[in-house]
Design a protein around this nucleic acid. Sequence first.
DNA 1: ATTAAATTTGACCAATCGGTCAGGTTTTGC
DNA 2: GCAAAACCTGACCGATTGGTCAAATTTAAT
Lengths: 240, 240
Amino acid sequence: MSDALDKGTVAGSAEAKDLDVKDSGGKDETAPGHIRLRNRALILAAAEEVFANQGYRGATTAAIAAKAGLPKANVHYYFGTKEALYHAVLEDILGLWLGELDRITEASDPATALADYIRAKIRHSRERPLASKVYANEMIRGARHTRDFLKNELRSLVKDKARVLDAWAAAGRIEPVDPVHLFSIIWAATQHYADFEVQVGALVGRRQLAARDYNEAAETIVRMVLRGLGLEYTAPQEQG
Amino acid sequence: MSDALDKGTVAGSAEAKDLDVKDSGGKDETAPGHIRLRNRALILAAAEEVFANQGYRGATTAAIAAKAGLPKANVHYYFGTKEALYHAVLEDILGLWLGELDRITEASDPATALADYIRAKIRHSRERPLASKVYANEMIRGARHTRDFLKNELRSLVKDKARVLDAWAAAGRIEPVDPVHLFSIIWAATQHYADFEVQVGALVGRRQLAARDYNEAAETIVRMVLRGLGLEYTAPQEQG
DNA sequence: ATTAAATTTGACCAATCGGTCAGGTTTTGC
DNA sequence: GCAAAACCTGACCGATTGGTCAAATTTAAT
């Protein structure tokens, strides 16, 4: 199996290149390795879309290549196997998942922190619905490629946040709640607007959800979560 | 498209047989059509599992046949095409989806009706997780086979329930709420425990969720929904 | 300028896919 | 008991799949 990855990883050492920057500020069309960077990005974006809409098995390397505007053999040149490409797409996504939770700390105000987190997650569902769909597909299929992430990174992160919630509860700042269920509900409700967009769209009578729909969704979720924890909820001022 | 269904529907008229009952109370091994009934049920159950875990494209008729304990040609004998089989599986599931909403009527008590509905949906996620996964897959893929259901049956049902919620709100029995978002949140949160079971399992540290996990999930959701609508929530008595 | 490394790609392959079919067996209706 | 209908299934097929490869071209470093 590692054989199949050799070709893709031979020059993979160049991947960290964009970290130690001395670059001219953005897109340098002549810098060494720019071809690899551009084509990998093209392929990853195309793969995310095809994996999201077709599932792992339904996605074909030919379809990904076509969407990226490259010949199929080129996709295999950069990523070796379809599985390795899928893994790379997932890796990109898992990074996003862990980010936004930073604002939930013992020092922060519970209502503000949770409300901001929910709004950020909804924004996420709106801006990167394909990532959410790929992740949902992966979970439904049993998290074959994500078991370790769930059992290690995600679990310890939730344990971390559980300590915050317990501290808040002990200080009487929120009512006690099982953190696993709280986050499950928040994740489910927010990601629903990406994964089931077509269903929500049919219910509101619009093919695509509008900005107002996402805002209303976020506020409804915030309201239920805050009230559920014994907190007050006040709707933010409209702006327009 | 109807051509592909012909073979499966030739004797499909026998499907309603189990409605007008005069049967001996359960399994009649000699009644006419019992072979068709048994084999169709075997295939549908196997198909639900394979479609749930592999997605539409990932599911193979050979895998479904193997899981049903029948030769592949037999699957095609009963259902014609893979697409027709998928359609039949979906049809089974859509029936389940519309059922439980009956308890939400203008006459019923809001807190009781909503709490019972949420608990029923969680029970559903526990007892028929595969159905939920097939449906989730279908939504993520853009509801290619379910567009009409969403735009007609489901939408009019939600409109119906919207009238109930509006009436409740007008009578001061709940706070006003957008029904689409309320149901979206309830569906997302409850179905999450089927579709993302592997994730929740990793977070609670159990491979499979226990009865207690589902109960706690239901109560957490009920608490947030009821409080979100300005209702009181009181935890039910433990038993055992 | 030279050369090594990286990139490109059409052609190709074995495996698997959904679906078909002929010919046999079993079940059913009378 | 008998004909018709329903059921069964191994063998087969064209299409598609993920993946390979060798030969050609472009880019990079000295």
